[in-house]
Design a binder for these strands. Structure first.
Lengths: 215, 215
DNA sequence: GTCTATAGGGTGATAGAC
DNA sequence: GTCTATCACCCTATAGAC
């Protein structure tokens, strides 16, 4: 993070790399803030401060606050849906579900801010994410629901609506990130505690696998 | 809603009743708006408009925007925790859980805004609700967890951590209110559809009851 | 209780020097 | 690319007439 940098390295090339890193720094800071106070509660000044640049300079990288917000959101969505891709037709159903649930809870532990920002956006009507939900997300879920239906047809899991099954997994696993404040207020524990983390994974796996007859 | 009101009725007494109704109107409007755009996204003007009075007049009833927000939150919390009170030690476990889940999903259908506002507040760290969570809520949950432990000790339900059980029920049932946008984007359906509502209740009941060995 | 007017502070975004 | 200065706007809250 040297301010001036030494020597005679070609400034243009280094600047470009710095620019990318700078954008990432801003996106990280923005995720921090947006996930805590929402789009309207955050000020550009605040985000710029945390990212270590001036307000005007931030607006050089992102032309408006909403643009920045959407950029953060898109990045979050990618990370967030990634685990679902690994649910494959040729897996063993029990292994696949167990693995998926563990990955989701792990993400709730390691990227709670991403979960919360996503949650805030959806709860408020997903004004800036609606297209992503009705397009790519819907397709992805439909694809995975088809796999579950295949397993049902083959008698490998009990017959339950795949949508409700997926929603139940999302609901429970994300609850431990989104409602962490409440969970901590009640239990005094969080996913950062390895024992509590493992309990959560095991409990959720048992709940879901039991439901589809895979205990 | 007569502006002038006729006749010679005692103005003081009627005014007081109107005042109460007026407050309620404002609280309803505020819930609408806050649950959609959050505390910071809402303007007093907007809420006053929806409630049918002027900004200055609203501030006569609620001294500041944050005061109004907290008033709405408290009212929401009461409604929201009410179903849990009916979980009693002398109930039949299967009936009690089934009933509780149905009530929670019903609330998600009939009071989704309350659920969403509560969700927004918790996700953002519950700055204005923390005491309520660590005090009354924690006590209430502890009380109900004790009941579940009694049932476990008596061999009436399978032994699982009561906290995780309660969180799972909350997570799933509230998901259909808080993430309704996502659910609709993916399935095209909502709790307003009686068939979907019944599916949701049945699925959640099956999931939970199966987990505690009551199917 | 209800209004109009306005004070007073903060914020998003732009202009323009370096 | 980065900064300072500034504009233009919105919004909370208050003052004071009715």
């Amino acid at each position: 993070m040297g301010v001036a940098g030494g020597g005679g390295t070609a400034p243009v090339r280094r600047r470009r790399r710095d620019g990318e890193a700078r954008r990432e720094t801003v996106l990280d800071a923005a995720l921090d803030i947006f996930s805590t106070v929402g789009l309207h509660g955050a000020s550009i000044d605040q985000i710029a401060d945390r990212a270590g640049l001036s307000k005007a300079n931030l607006l050089y990288y992102f032309p408006s606050k909403e643009d920045l917000y959407v950029a953060v959101l898109r990045r979050v969505l990618d990370v967030w849906l990634d685990p679902l891709h690994s649910l494959r037709a040729d897996s063993e159903p029990a292994d696949a579900l167990r693995h998926y649930i563990r990955r989701k809870v792990t993400l709730s532990r390691d990227a709670p801010q991403a979960s919360r920002l996503f949650c805030l956006e959806i709860v408020q009507g997903a004004r800036l994410l609606r297209e992503e939900l009705e397009g790519p997300l819907r397709s992805l879920v439909e694809e995975k629901a088809a796999i579950l239906r295949t397993w049902i047809a083959a008698g490998r899991i009990a017959p339950h609506d795949p949508h409700h099954l997926i929603f139940s997994i999302w609901a429970i696993t994300q609850h431990y990130a989104d409602f962490a404040t409440q969970v901590e207020a009640i239990t005094g524990r969080s996913l950062a505690d390895p024992v509590f983390f493992e309990e959560t994974v095991t409990n959720t796996q048992g709940l879901i696998l039991g439901h589809v007859g895979l205990v």
